[in-house]
């Protein structure tokens, strides 16, 4: 089995004359949490939509879990969509179904022969696995707070025990306490279930807290991939601004790093960095 969960080669996405991605390549290893960052409008969400097959790229090749996206699956191969889970920004819960019924939708779709009682049980433990109280299972999405909606969306994303989890700005719109709790939940599930996580975020704390590696989107491609100390050594102005700006420094301070060292530019991405995070 190959050790890459996602392989993106030479991806190009165009809307009319406007190219969002050009020659974008990125490899995601199995079992890692990769954070994707980039300024507004650099196509982070478009990248995720291309990987999960919602957006057909104008050019390029995307392989997920050894399967090329957009091609028919080989006989005997499991549907790739049963092997990943996606959490959309607002949770994207089906508003006419309760939380537990939402979790049951993929189960019903992929395993229609499953006993309804077992399906209810699975839905219940998924709901409590994501840290929601038991009584949340019978609630409708409109009765939940923003943070609870995200957790419920996560429960649905985890319904089929996926190998790969896509999170689109999971902490956006949450208060700092809720965001921190969601971060630790992500980390915990990653460790317990052995998930590979593809995480789009703006949240510097999330990056420091849970990401193994970070990919930076700028100039229509991935300009750098690496751990945060590696990235901080980069002299690309955007990366420097991002991690070295006031917010980047305070997120680093919160992790006990030495903010002053950030000002000193070091050599390349591969060099070991004195400012440890």
């Amino acid at each position: 089995m190959n050790d890459l969960a996602i392989r993106i080669e030479d991806l190009e996405n165009r809307f009319g004359d406007h190219a969002v991605h050009e020659g974008l390549s990125l490899d995601v290893r199995r079992g890692e949490i990769i954070g994707v960052v980039g300024g507004s409008g650099t196509g982070k969400s478009v990248l995720m939509r291309s990987v999960i097959g919602l957006q057909t790229p104008s050019h390029g090749r995307i392989e997920v879990l050894g399967h090329e996206v957009g091609t028919p699956r080989a006989p005997g191969e499991a549907d790739i969509r049963s092997r990943w889970g996606v959490l959309f920004q607002g949770g994207a819960l089906f508003s006419t179904l309760t939380v537990a019924e939402n979790v049951e939708v993929p189960l019903k779709e992929f395993y229609p022969d499953m006993d309804p009682e077992l399906r209810h049980e699975i839905a219940r433990y998924k709901v409590s696995l994501t840290g929601l109280p038991d009584n949340a299972a019978a609630k409708y999405p409109s009765e939940l707070s923003g943070g609870m909606k995200k957790r419920a969306g996560l429960a649905r994303a985890l319904a089929l025990d996926p190998e790969l989890l896509f999170l689109d700005e999971p902490t956006a719109g949450l208060d700092p306490i809720g965001a921190a709790a969601f971060d630790s939940l992500t980390r915990e599930l990653h460790e317990t279930l052995g998930l590979t996580v593809f995480l789009i975020t703006h949240d510097l704390d999330t990056l420091h807290e849970i990401c193994d590696r970070v990919a930076v989107l700028a100039d229509k491609k991935v300009i750098a991939v690496g751990t945060i100390p590696e990235l901080m050594a980069s002299d690309h102005p955007w990366i420097h601004e991002y991690f070295g700006g006031p917010r980047g420094r305070s997120a680093l301070m919160a992790r006990g790093g030495e903010a002053q060292d950030l000002g000193a530019k070091t050599h390349g991405l591969d060099s070991p960095n004195p400012a440890k995070a």
Binding site: T98, E101, R124, V127, S128, D134, A137, A138
Partner: peptide
Amino acid sequence: AVKCCSGDAPIAP
């Protein structure tokens, strides 16, 4: 991880 769930909560109001 899974046994934290008591397992008899209703799934619909």
